[in-house]
């Protein structure tokens, strides 16, 4: 609705625009969503017999996960670069960086697919142990977040972005910044998931 103020420009006394405040509040609720699962993880780990989590954790594939970590970090930096390119009015670079981000996200999913299926091939399922249960739940929810993010990214990589670029450059930059915040958050979650699931 065109009559809603502060969609793009900052409100003087708060220094924020609506969508940025909105996405941070959304991220706050996401922190609590993953927070509930983290809390469950720690609770279950403490309640479990000693060494149980460590034993099952050692069955996970660390090199694959390390590679995945690097993929997500890369996608994060290209995400922020694509935003910077928009700010520098370099639309082609924007598309390139966003494309790399999407590819990294897709590669992450592919690696995750191989990780999951190799577990299933070895007869390891969520019902195999508490650790595996929480591992599949946490990473599964994270994968859902990646998929959701990718859908948005693909939308902004599609022809739609050319249209927005021609119509309202600031709006596109704002949308990319917001999407970026979400994407970095998904990366952030993985940064914590990686050590607690794979390394400890």
């Amino acid at each position: 609705m065109s009559n809603i103020p502060y969609i793009l420009e900052e409100r003087p006394d708060t220094g924020l625009n609506n969508s940025k405040l909105g996405v941070w509040i959304f991220l706050a609720s996401e922190v609590m969503l993953f927070g509930g699962l983290f809390s469950a993880y720690v609770f279950l780990r403490i309640a479990a017999p000693e060494g149980d989590f460590g034993y099952w954790g050692s069955k996970l594939n660390v090199p694959m996960a390390t590679f995945n970590t690097l993929l997500l970090i890369t996608s994060s930096v290209t995400m922020v670069m694509s935003w910077a390119s928009l700010k520098l009015e370099q639309f082609d670079k924007y598309k390139m960086y966003l494309g790399i981000t999407i590819l990294c996200g897709l590669a992450f999913l592919v690696v995750k697919y191989f990780e999951y299926t190799s577990k299933f091939d070895h007869g390891i399922y969520p019902s195999s142990s508490t650790f595996m249960g929480i591992y599949f739940t946490l990473t599964g929810l994270h994968v859902l977040h990646i998929i959701g993010g990718l859908l948005v990214l693909i939308f902004f990589w599609s022809k739609q972005s050319d249209k927005m670029w021609n119509e309202d450059k600031d709006l596109l930059a704002n949308r990319i910044e917001i999407t970026g915040l979400y994407w970095h958050f998904v990366d952030l979650v993985w940064i914590f998931l990686f050590p607690i699931l794979y390394l400890l």
Binding site: M32, F34, G35, G36, L37, S127, T137
Partner: peptide
Amino acid sequence: PPLESAAILQLMDRLVGTS
């Protein structure tokens, strides 16, 4: 949100066989 995560865990218990 923590109830949402709890609901996910309970769904896992009911449907996937975790405990």
